[in-house]
Design a protein around this nucleic acid. Structure first.
Length: 256
DNA sequence: ATGGTTGTAAAACAA
């Protein structure tokens, strides 16, 4: 089974690229972030026509997450349990084929020390609380999405220049590490230990051409899935297209 | 160079 995560930065703008990518790569599950689409306008028809189901949790202008799968999407939960609005449209989870799929768009945080930065840290705490309330690390589970954190220096093109900056600060890494140590393994890093592999490049300054990137989009798995994870990759092809998302899709293959 | 670009939505704001 192939599972992918992709911050599309507006689903309406990126719909044709998404459909083309799905036709070519035939993923079984796709988790989207930054759909920037209200639920009434979610483009179900072309996705269903390709043979997929979809569940979505969106809003106007900002945020928005969705799960697309080639098999039934069950037990859908939108937002953290008990507080669907305060977590904003940044979290959706479901069960697919007995695997819990948690799809998240963690706040960007703007700048270290800013109001949005502290919102990011409190949001991460909310995610941890949700995990502890609702889940057990012994169950087959995937936590994926745009985490807006580069976990280690190897995940940044210039660790010295970026030291302590947003997406790389100790506070963010500690908060994210607290979630990881609850019971997750970074599936990509498990299989691809090398440096220079990123999932996001700023639109500005020719960042993609110069590979000035950050690995901030992640697929994390619990222990029962660890041995089943046989392949992980970042597909840079869509980032090379006209009018690309600033993020590339990240994917893993899990065996039965 | 305190810069640069994109999306949303109609002037800033978020990223």
């Amino acid at each position: 089974m192939i599972l992918a995560t992709w911050n599309v930065n507006s689903l309406s703008v990126r719909l044709e690229q998404l459909l083309a990518w799905m036709k070519e790569n035939k993923p079984n599950i796709v988790c989207l972030q930054e759909t920037k689409s209200v639920d009434e306008k979610f483009p179900c028809e072309p996705i269903v026509s390709l043979g997929y189901h979809c569940q979505y949790f969106g809003e106007k202008t900002y945020n928005g997450v969705a799960i697309i799968a080639d098999r039934p999407i069950e037990k859908v939960q939108k937002g953290f349990v008990g507080e669907p609005t305060s977590s904003s449209k940044r979290f959706i989870e479901a069960e697919i084929d007995g695997i819990k799929i948690l799809n998240t768009y963690i706040p960007n945080g703007q700048a270290v020390g800013s109001e949005k930065f502290f919102y990011k840290l409190s949001w991460l705490k909310g995610l941890k609380d949700h995990l502890e309330k609702m889940h057990s690390p012994g169950t087959p589970m995937v936590l994926c999405g745009d985490f807006n954190v580069a976990p280690e220096d190897v995940d940044i093109y210039d660790p010295q220049a970026m030291a302590g900056q947003i997406m790389c600060s100790d506070e963010e890494r500690l908060a994210l590490n607290d979630i990881r140590s609850w019971g997750f393994t970074d599936a990509y890093r498990l299989l691809e230990p090398g440096a220079g592999n990123y999932s996001w490049w700023d639109y500005r300054m020719g960042a993609f051409r110069r590979n000035m990137g950050f690995r901030i989009d992640h697929i994390w798995i619990t222990q029962p899935l660890k041995d089943k994870c046989v392949k992980a990759w970042i597909d840079k092809a869509p980032r090379k297209l006209e009018r690309p998302s600033d993020h590339a899709p990240v994917a893993v293959e899990l065996t039965n």
